[in-house]
Simulated assay, not measured.
Amino acid sequence: MLAEIQVSPRPGGNAENPYAHIEAAIAVIENAGLVYEVGAMGTTIEGTPEQVWTLLRAVHEATLKAGAAGVTSHIKVGQGADDDGPSIIDLVGKFRA
Rank of each mutant, 00 (worst) to 15 (best):
26 I>A: 01
80 G>W: 11
81 A>C: 14
62 A>N: 07
82 D>I: 09
45 I>E: 01
30 E>C: 06
15 A>S: 14
71 V>E: 01
36 Y>K: 04
4 E>A: 05
70 G>S: 15
21 H>A: 01
78 G>R: 14
29 I>V: 13
29 I>Q: 05
47 G>S: 00
16 E>R: 11
79 Q>N: 12
94 K>R: 15
10 R>K: 14
77 V>H: 12
8 S>K: 12
79 Q>C: 14
62 A>Y: 06
46 E>K: 02
8 S>F: 13
77 V>M: 15
80 G>Y: 11
41 M>D: 04
37 E>M: 10
4 E>M: 07
21 H>Y: 09
95 F>G: 15
55 L>P: 03
66 A>E: 07
83 D>P: 04
70 G>P: 08
64 L>N: 06
5 I>N: 05
49 P>I: 05
28 V>E: 11
65 K>S: 11
93 G>F: 06
97 A>I: 09
49 P>M: 08
55 L>C: 08
39 G>R: 03
77 V>C: 14
87 S>H: 13
7 V>K: 00
80 G>P: 09
26 I>Q: 03
43 T>P: 00
86 P>G: 14
41 M>Y: 08
38 V>Y: 02
1 M>T: 14
27 A>C: 06
88 I>W: 04
5 I>V: 12
44 T>N: 00
24 A>D: 00
47 G>T: 01
38 V>A: 05
25 A>N: 00
18 P>G: 06
22 I>K: 02
77 V>W: 13
18 P>R: 11
90 D>N: 12
45 I>L: 09
56 L>H: 10
17 N>D: 15
89 I>C: 12
79 Q>Y: 10
6 Q>R: 13
96 R>A: 10
57 R>P: 01
84 D>S: 15
75 I>T: 09
40 A>F: 02
67 G>F: 10
91 L>F: 09
36 Y>H: 12
26 I>G: 00
30 E>Y: 06
44 T>S: 04
17 N>R: 11
50 E>L: 10
12 G>D: 12
92 V>P: 08
77 V>S: 11
18 P>N: 12
39 G>N: 04
67 G>V: 11
56 L>T: 10
49 P>D: 07
25 A>Y: 00
5 I>K: 01
3 A>H: 00
2 L>F: 07
83 D>R: 10
35 V>T: 13
73 S>Q: 08
67 G>H: 10
10 R>Q: 12
11 P>G: 01
62 A>H: 06
62 A>T: 09
33 G>P: 02
76 K>S: 15
71 V>N: 07
88 I>G: 03
17 N>F: 07
29 I>T: 08
88 I>H: 03
75 I>P: 05
31 N>P: 01
46 E>Y: 01
13 G>I: 03
94 K>M: 10
41 M>N: 02
